[in-house]
Nucleic acid binder design. Structure first.
Lengths: 139, 139
DNA sequence: AATTTTGCTTGCATATTGCAAGTGCAAATA
DNA sequence: TATTTGCACTTGCAATATGCAAGCAAAATT
């Protein structure tokens, strides 16, 4: 589990105390851009997160109020993970990470569509996507 | 040193392979927002990074082309660290981290001015600051 | 010439990560 | 009803990364 104690009052430092690792933002990414919403879904993503790390990150993200656990509508055996509003507010950050990554790495073709959409109208994309994400937790 | 092998082709994952730790972006922050440009400057910042970690992060950031080492104009004993264009392009990301951090943590008064400036005109702030940072490496 | 500053490196204890195997409960299948 | 499978984790342990303190060489200062 990542630590709790904050190193300073700087907003960057505080934010990194929560997300400053290689995995947390990938979970957020999955919640935003793929339909991932269960433990198994997160395990399936390309980067192959270790199961104990996944569990510890989900716990930390929940404790930080970024995601929320609830009953899966399909089955009692499943757990539904969803973003909170605090988590949805990370969208602009994830968008900027995508744009920087797109500029400096080779991006697979399947992702180009979204990146192009973002580049064409960033504020528009963000507000549309934020509404979409907020709707999905209000319903 | 953080690892080199990339976990997937996802831009978020690739970016986290470079910055997915608690320290790298604090160094970038210092280069952007304080006048920090030497090893000693980075050590002085509030979060108190360990010297070996600082060395390994500076090395990794340089290897990733995000910062550059050069001769300090004042003295041969000093090393001057500066952002490359690739590093300057991280500004929008740092801005978003600041905004999220500002929204969800208590921010010290001294930082409020910058945050307010960002909130009032984000694109304007970013383009002004980017120019400023680019100028400082061109001169 | 001696001391201090600067930018590191080294050694070692502790913490975090990664991997593999295992557990408990719900649901599907036989 | 008994058994197997799926799902969400937990546990143990080895490998890696971090944090702390001390040390070190070159340059600058005294």
């Amino acid at each position: 589990m990542p630590d709790q104690k904050k190193r300073s009052d700087c907003p960057v430092s505080c934010t990194l105390d929560v997300f400053g690792d290689k995995w947390s933002l990938l979970i957020i990414r999955d919640l935003m851009f793929t339909k991932s919403c269960t433990y198994g879904d997160f395990q399936k993503s390309e980067e192959k997160i270790a199961t104990n790390i996944l569990a510890s990150r989900l716990k930390a993200l929940e404790e930080n109020g970024v995601i929320r656990k609830s009953q899966h509508p399909e089955s009692k055996a499943k757990v539904l993970y969803t973003l909170t509003e605090k988590g949805i507010d990370l969208l602009p950050l994830i968008v900027e990470i995508n744009l920087w990554g797109d500029k400096y790495f080779e991006i697979p073709k399947q992702l180009e569509a979204v990146i192009t959409e973002i580049k064409e109208d960033k504020p528009g994309f963000i507000s549309r996507k934020m509404s979409e994400l907020k709707d999905s937790i209000t319903v």
